[in-house]
Design a protein around this nucleic acid. Structure first.
Length: 543
DNA sequence: ACGATCGCTG
């Protein structure tokens, strides 16, 4: 019943004729830009004044400033101020030590965090739930969820206090490393799971494309009388858009509105994005108008999503209008804005313009993130400018940007397509050495590259390696191998592999059939080609 | 101290 398409969308028909692209004069939307830097400096000088006073101020005075700096995410500064404080002989209390642990965790310096943990005992304090939760979150953030669970077991055995947040942190940690099943198991051990825990599970299930299970958890909340809040609805709306059930998402939008929960900037941004992805740019732009009418201020994500939508349709002029509307409304472009524009120009075959924007980021003291580097590296590779791409790849390390599986895959693809097959294999070795595991994309790029370059042997080695490691090849993997075998005239082997593919439950797509049929025709095996052709038709693979 | 939105690889 919930899948009904007859959901009426109360929001969209009421869309105003308001043009979001006119400069705004409403004071509500003029941003009052606080300079974070000057606030930070003020806090530090205030701290130093306290530090040098004749009468030593109470520890709470320092604590207030430290708390402020942590809220401003100034972790390194907080750590150095605490060090100065202790150097002056002002000893931290438990709250300061907790704060220090928190700072080290945010900076992923867990060894330091745990040494502060030891200090808590040395000074005769007892860790509280905050201490333990912070350490568990620190472990989870680094992906060391198993360690967090072990830590949990230990502190429980020692009788230390945990609270409502503790299990939320662990459930979240498990979900974020893809262990949703384990997260659900953990949730099931809790008598009254919180709204947040339900949300974490529903979010993960939808991101892993399990809408039915996600719906079951939503239904469980309803049955148990747990009222859904704004974040729950945003998660459901986003997730159902993600699995392609946009009308269900709009159903949740209506449900939240009828429950008197007003959409916020997240809700509207999700709608803008999904409408852009459905190529309904007019409606996406209207949502921006609706949100302004509802006194919800669009943020950088709203504009980024809309701009990306226009770039996806190669509507560069409109995208530029969005950019100027955004600055008119006092919303500053961020790294992602630049990433979207760089990607837009590359899609538009204007790599030169993309490079200019990349340069502009330098001028604005913006450090491109991994995704931006990936975008440009891939764009350069695709037009054969491998050495330029390679320069950027090397530049990343110096700017503390981690190359990931996409970075390597793009470069490997570029190397393969420009006849540098040995270098491609060398880079595969290097990525593993650097702790980046190739995924199916990487493997398929390599197999394709080797086959096209006439190095079937290398392709077979990579394919065999995949099997040896217990991974399942996917359709593109089989297609690449089958095509490689056909190219070398090894039709029988190609057909044997095709049988194995089908037996393994990996069903051919239209490309598989095209490869096989054209190879059979080329080889004069017309009758066999026709058999495959009819099989393809009977499977309804022609659109 | 736990949850939600935008950009990158075949």
């Amino acid at each position: 019943m919930w899948l009904s398409r007859s959901v009426t969308v109360s929001l969209l028909p009421s869309i105003a004729k308001f043009s979001p692209f006119l400069p705004m004069h409403n004071s509500l939307f003029c941003s009052h830009l606080h300079s974070q830097t000057s606030l930070h400096d003020d806090a530090v000088s205030q701290f130093n004044r306290l530090l040098h006073q004749r009468h030593v101020p109470s520890i709470f005075e320092f604590g207030k400033i430290l708390g402020f700096l942590v809220r401003m995410k100034q972790y390194s500064t907080s750590i150095s101020l605490i060090k100065q404080m202790e150097f002056k002989g002002i000893l931290c209390d438990l709250a300061n030590l907790n704060l220090l642990i928190n700072c080290f965790c945010h900076l992923h310096k867990l060894a330091f965090a745990f040494s502060v943990f030891a200090k808590i005992f040395k000074r005769g304090y007892h860790p509280d739930a905050f201490t333990l939760n912070t350490l568990m979150r620190g472990l989870c953030d680094k992906g060391e969820v198993k360690e967090a669970l072990n830590f949990h077991d230990k502190v429980v055995a020692l009788g230390f206090p945990l609270d409502q947040y503790s299990y939320g942190i662990l459930v979240n940690g498990l979900s974020k490393i893809g262990e949703t099943e384990a997260a659900i198991e953990l949730l099931r051990t809790i008598q009254r799971p919180s709204i947040v825990m339900y949300n974490i599970i529903i979010d993960s299930l939808l991101k892993e494309k399990h809408p039915t299970e996600a719906y079951d958890f939503y239904y469980e909340m309803v049955i148990k009388g747990i009222p859904l809040n704004l974040v729950n609805y945003n998660t459901l709306i986003y997730g159902f858009c993600l699995v392609g059930q946009v009308e269900v998402a709009f159903g949740f939008l209506n449900e939240m509105i009828s429950n008197s929960i007003r959409p916020d900037v997240y809700t509207y941004n999700i709608l803008i994005d999904v409408l852009c992805k459905e190529r309904k740019l007019g409606e996406a732009k209207n949502v921006l108008g609706v949100m302004v009418k509802a006194y919800v201020k669009p943020n950088v994500v709203s504009f980024n999503a809309l701009m990306n939508g226009y770039y996806a349709l190669n509507k560069v002029r409109n995208a530029k209008q969005v950019f100027s509307a955004m600055t008119h409304m006092g919303v500053s472009p961020d790294v992602k804005t630049y990433g979207i524009m760089i990607n837009g120009f590359i899609r538009n075959k204007r790599v030169d313009k993309a490079i200019n924007l990349f340069q502009e980021m330098h001028d604005r003291n913006m450090v491109p993130d991994t995704v931006t580097y990936n975008t440009l590296i891939d764009g350069l590779c695709k037009i054969g400018r491998i050495s330029h791409a390679w320069d950027l790849f090397r530049e990343m390390r110096g700017r503390n940007r981690q190359a990931n599986v996409i970075t390597y895959s793009s470069l490997i693809d570029g190397l393969c397509k420009n006849q540098h097959l040995d270098k491609a294999i060398e880079l595969l070795r290097k990525m593993r050495e650097n702790g980046v595991q190739p995924d199916m994309y990487t493997v398929n790029i390599l197999i394709n590259g080797m086959c096209r370059g006439g190095r079937l042997k290398n392709a077979q080695e990579i394919f065999q390696d995949l099997l040896n490691k217990g991974h399942n090849p996917n359709i593109p993997t089989y297609n690449a191998m089958i095509s490689g075998l056909c190219k070398e005239g090894l039709l029988d082997e190609a057909l044997t592999l095709w049988s194995k593919m089908e037996d393994s439950g990996c069903l051919s797509n239209v490309i598989t059939f095209e490869i096989i049929i054209s190879a059979l025709f080329k080889n004069g095996q017309t009758e066999k080609a026709e058999v495959f052709f009819h099989e393809m038709i009977s499977r309804d693979l022609l659109k």
